[in-house]
Design a protein around this nucleic acid. Structure first.
Length: 754
DNA sequence: CTTGCAATGACTGAT
DNA sequence: TCATTGCAAG
């Protein structure tokens, strides 16, 4: 039992308390994942069959990591059989198994956000509604919200309050869109993300014997990140745990950041009412971060009203203060962060993977990419457009999807005329209209044109038949041929390969390479199968819509700096963290200033950002940045002022007068803040930092000229042969001992010899 | 039906 | 800034 020695008393208690309901409130960095892994290992070692375990995580990556850690403790063969994954992927599997019971095909398609928005858009157009009023994105959000709260289209159309609310916001026909959307998804045998949970509930309600089966199969249920579950997920868990009552939820209300996705913080706050007999464990010792970081984060989260009381503390050393950096533009912010990383790497022999740059919105990544590339620092961007969402990949996948499930309307629309085969919009519209009239999928209209007559021109009809014949030939091979062979065949026969090969522009070449990458990924998949058995393309397609960028296994062991949104950094940790774009209207987001609840969620997001760091946090803001191509002036985020100033040190370029202190003072006056002034402490630190800050008048190096003789602490004497920037930031220096070196003046500590 | 250009709106967050 | 959409001409 030596494995368990590394746990502290609270952790061990939480691990061993397996019977009944328990809730683990786990502060940031308190070893939550350890508790989950050891708990599963403990259960199995004490005789629980892995088949009886269900562990629900927030990301596929978290599930994978947990599985491999459990395998290290108790061995691969046992850990493999635990049902572990995200809510979406676990229940997608169960739904495929029982699909016929709720009228779906086993190989139903999963619509991603793009697909479902596109379908909503066409329904709005078909109903003749104004897209300016019925904005597809907003409608999608409303439908999603309804599903997450288990309100079906029928319920919605009967709910007086909802109908009234829609009327008041001049969208009285929203419920019609919801109804039609549902119908079209059903006809296409497609489910969107929310359906995977909604239909699971439906399956359990309509088929008690299925529910009964899983209630007995899953005798122990664990839910990670419980604070971010929505109503639909909550009900699933509650149903499954109803028989045995062995449920363990783990979470931290202070890290609830997904309410926009329907997450309901009340789920964790109300656990004690649902399970009055529950055991409560609080993990409050942070093992991750320095004392400064832990206390700074605590000082921020203390401003929130809605929270479970807890005290996160640490035994770790105090560490450095949190740096606050002000720059004039977003590009300068990028350069500054890149330079800091360069410096820390050099001084502390850090690896690239020790660094993360965290921002509020995906669009902010650009200035950092550029700056890092200039310094030759390797990086990787997470989120944004994932590999599987790129146009060319989606195009080819649409062929695969259509071959697996020809009723998939979105895939059909996507590729029926790509590559160009003379089937234009008017033809497609006629097909869709006919499908609606005859109550069948568009596929049925084009594959059996005698049964579903239309007024489509004969030439177009012939082209449709040719297309249908091609898809049909792919379908036939779907469950016969090897995945890679078929994928290769489809890529060629569809004309996609030719289309992309002929495009010699840089983007075209990149697209062609992406297709190759997808095909070699499928090849790898083909080869993972058991000896002698064939891996089908349909198996590869299962749940591909549920994969994200973070699930790229190959990228995990590469040594790169991570760039991501704070949302996607949840659950991760890095020695050095840069929280950037700390500006009003950006973070907190302008769209989150309408209510206290929204602002508190932004504050929790800031808390999550700070607590990702082990050793050092640096936060920065720019006083101006480009947004949609025009320059906007911005003010520092209120959250900077909310950190107890004893944990901060300010650094900034004093060009442009006022400086940090003045800005903060103005803000304090504006907010009528009566707390102790942070002005004095900033004054103090400002003086100190001016000495070392770059490109101020005090800095002797603005006087550097080409031809100067200089001395460097490592390379010795040298001569300046080139300069970049005005004032100069980078110098090329020739050292007789070391040759030509590119040096950043800020870090090189060059001394000019008179 | 396709092509090419001008106009337009998007940027919270993501399974 | 960038990608998508609408419209006119071939």
């Amino acid at each position: 039992m030596g494995y368990f020695d590394s746990l502290n008393a609270q952790q061990l208690a939480a691990v061993k308390c397996t019977e009944g309901a328990s809730m683990v409130i786990a502060g940031a960095g308190s070893g939550k994942t350890r508790v989950l892994t050891y708990r599963i290992a403990w259960l199995i070692q004490n005789g629980c069959d892995p088949f009886h375990l269900l562990a629900l995580t927030f990301t596929n990556k978290a599930a994978r990591e947990m599985k491999s850690r459990i395998a290290e403790i108790i061995g691969d063969s046992d850990s493999r059989n635990v049902a572990m994954g995200t809510f979406h992927s676990v229940f997608a599997k169960i739904l495929r198994f029982h699909a016929d019971k709720i009228g779906y095909q086993k190989n139903f398609t999963i619509y991603d956000t793009q697909d479902s928005r596109s379908l909503i858009k066409s329904i709005i157009t078909e109903l003749g509604l104004d897209e300016k009023i019925y904005k597809p994105g907003l409608i999608q959000h409303r439908i999603s919200g309804a599903k997450n709260n288990l309100i079906s289209a029928v319920d919605y159309a009967r709910d007086g309050d909802l109908l009234l609310a829609d009327k008041m916001s001049s969208k009285p026909r929203l419920h019609e869109i919801y109804t039609l959307y549902d119908l079209r998804c059903f006809k296409a045998s497609a489910m969107d993300f929310d359906d995977l949970l909604f239909k699971t509930n439906l399956l359990f309600d309509e088929h008690p014997q299925v529910l009964h089966f899983y209630q007995h199969k899953f005798r122990y249920i664990l839910v990670d990140e419980y604070q971010d579950t929505n109503q639909s997920q909550y009900v699933i868990v509650k149903k499954l745990a109803a028989v045995h009552g062995n449920i363990c939820v783990v979470g931290d209300d202070a890290q609830s950041i997904y309410s926009f996705r329907g997450a309901n913080i009340q789920n964790i706050l109300n656990f004690k009412h649902d399970y009055p007999e529950h055991f409560l464990f609080k993990l409050e010792q942070n093992y991750r971060s320095t004392r400064t970081i832990v206390n700074a984060a605590n000082s921020v989260i203390a401003k929130n009203k809605d929270q479970i009381v807890k005290t996160v503390w640490t035994d770790n050393p105090t560490g450095n203060k949190i740096r606050v950096v002000r720059t004039l533009t977003d590009n300068e912010e990028g350069k500054h962060v890149a330079n800091q990383i360069y410096e820390i790497k050099f001084n502390h022999q850090a690896r690239s993977r020790d660094f993360a740059i965290l921002y509020r919105t995906n669009a902010q990544s650009r200035s950092f990419e550029e700056a890092l590339r200039k310094l030759n620092l390797p990086y990787r961007i997470y989120g944004g457009l994932s590999f599987y969402q790129r146009k060319e990949i989606k195009d080819l996948l649409a062929y695969f999807r259509l071959a697996a499930n020809p009723h998939d309307e979105e895939s059909l629309k996507r590729i029926v005329n790509y590559p160009k085969r003379g089937i234009g919009n008017s033809t497609i519209d006629k097909v869709i209209v006919a499908g609606n009239d005859f109550q069948v999928s568009p596929w049925e209209v084009i594959s059996d044109q005698t049964a579903y007559p239309t007024d489509i021109a004969p030439s177009a009809k012939r082209k449709l038949s040719e297309f249908a014949a091609m898809i049909q030939s792919f379908s036939v091979q779907m469950e016969k041929s090897d995945a890679h062979e078929l994928a290769q065949h489809i890529a060629k026969a569809s004309g996609i390969m030719k289309e992309l090969y002929e495009d010699k522009s840089p983007e075209g070449v990149a697209r062609f390479e992406n297709i190759q990458a997808l095909l070699s990924g499928i090849k790898e998949f083909s080869e993972t199968g058991e000896e002698g058995s064939t891996q089908f393309l349909s198996d590869f397609m299962v749940d591909i819509a549920l994969l994200t960028d973070a699930d790229d296994k190959k990228a995990e062991d590469q040594d790169t700096i991570s760039l991501m949104t704070i949302h996607s950094s949840k659950g991760l940790e890095f020695p050095y963290v840069f929280v950037v774009g700390m500006e009003e209207n950006l973070f907190p987001s302008q769209l989150a200033l309408n209510s206290r609840a929204e602002l508190e969620e932004e504050r929790r997001l800031f808390y999550v950002a700070l607590t990702r760091a082990e050793k050092l946090v640096s936060i920065s803001y720019a006083t101006s940045r480009y947004r949609w191509g025009n320059l906007i002036i911005s003010e520092p985020s209120r959250f900077i002022d909310e950190v107890d100033p004893e944990f901060l040190e300010f650094e900034g370029q004093m060009r442009g007068g006022g400086g940090v202190a003045l800005g903060a003072l103005n803000k304090q006056a504006r907010m009528g803040n009566a707390t102790k002034s942070i002005f004095s402490s900033q004054q103090r630190t400002l003086k100190k930092i001016n000495v070392s800050s770059q490109s101020t008048l005090n800095d002797p190096l603005v006087d550097i000229r080409v031809g100067n003789n200089v001395i460097h602490e490592r390379f010795g004497k040298g001569k300046v042969v080139g300069l970049e920037g005005n004032p100069p930031v980078k110098a090329t220096v020739f050292f007789p001992n070391a040759g030509n070196k590119q040096l950043l003046l800020k870090f090189a500590k060059l001394e000019i010899l008179e």
